[in-house]
Simulated scan of single mutants.
Amino acid sequence: MPIDEFEVPKELREFMIDGAHETMLGQKNGANKQYRYGNLHIREYDDKFLVHTDKIDPRKDPFGHLVYDAPEILIGVACSILGGSKIAKLFLKNNKSKNLTVAATITSSIIAGYIGYVATKKAKNYLE
């Protein structure tokens, strides 16, 4: 749980801010539902709510939100593109099989993107 995130047990208080809207924006992290109210991000679980404030509301500035609040997604996508393109170039140079090149590109893109995402997420959590 990030430092700026706090937990509200449902047994203590069942709440939802008037004007908060259910959203698909954000990582659910196993939550049943998630809501946004301005920069406030609320995740609802069976027994609790987890609440934190984002620096930038993704509904108003999606790219800014990715840069400041979720850089792991941008870095994962960049790693996916770079890793996939490097492997594709290697396979195109050394192989004549287009199917093998496509499979290798997709697989390497997924692996490189996942590694970039996880490494950045761990670094971000360590720095918080």
Rank of each mutant, 00 (worst) to 15 (best):
K89C: 14
I17M: 12
A20C: 05
N39S: 10
K86N: 14
K98L: 15
I73R: 00
V8Y: 01
E44N: 09
I111P: 00
L12F: 12
Y126N: 11
G64D: 04
E7D: 07
P9S: 13
P71S: 07
M24V: 14
E11P: 03
Y37V: 09
T120Y: 03
L40Q: 02
S109F: 01
A70Q: 01
T23N: 03
M16A: 08
C79G: 02
Y126T: 11
K89I: 10
R13V: 14
V51A: 08
N99I: 10
K121R: 11
F6G: 01
F15A: 10
F15E: 12
N99G: 08
D54A: 03
N29Y: 13
P9A: 15
F15T: 09
Q27I: 11
F15N: 09
H41L: 07
G113D: 04
R36W: 03
R36A: 06
T101W: 02
Y117N: 03
D4H: 08
P58L: 05
L100W: 05
S85P: 01
N32P: 03
D47W: 04
N125Q: 14
T120C: 08
A78F: 10
D4F: 04
S97V: 12
D18T: 13
G30H: 07
V77Y: 02
R36Q: 03
S80R: 03
R13S: 13
L25E: 05
K121E: 14
L92D: 09
A119Q: 04
A88K: 06
D69E: 05
I111W: 02
L90M: 14
M16N: 09
N29W: 14
M1N: 10
M24F: 15
S109L: 05
K48I: 11
G76N: 04
K55V: 10
Y45W: 06
D18K: 13
A119M: 10
A20M: 01
K60M: 11
E11I: 14
A123W: 05
S108C: 12
E72F: 00
D47S: 10
I3H: 12
M1A: 10
A112I: 00
E128P: 00
Y35S: 00
H21W: 08
S108V: 09
E22I: 06
A112G: 01
V51W: 05
N99V: 09
E22V: 02
A119C: 11
E7L: 07
T23P: 01
K48P: 01
I56V: 12
A119T: 08
I42M: 00
S80N: 08
F63K: 00
N99Q: 11
E128D: 13
P9L: 15
N94D: 15
I42P: 02
Y126V: 10
D57A: 08
E5L: 00
L74E: 02
K96L: 14
L25I: 09
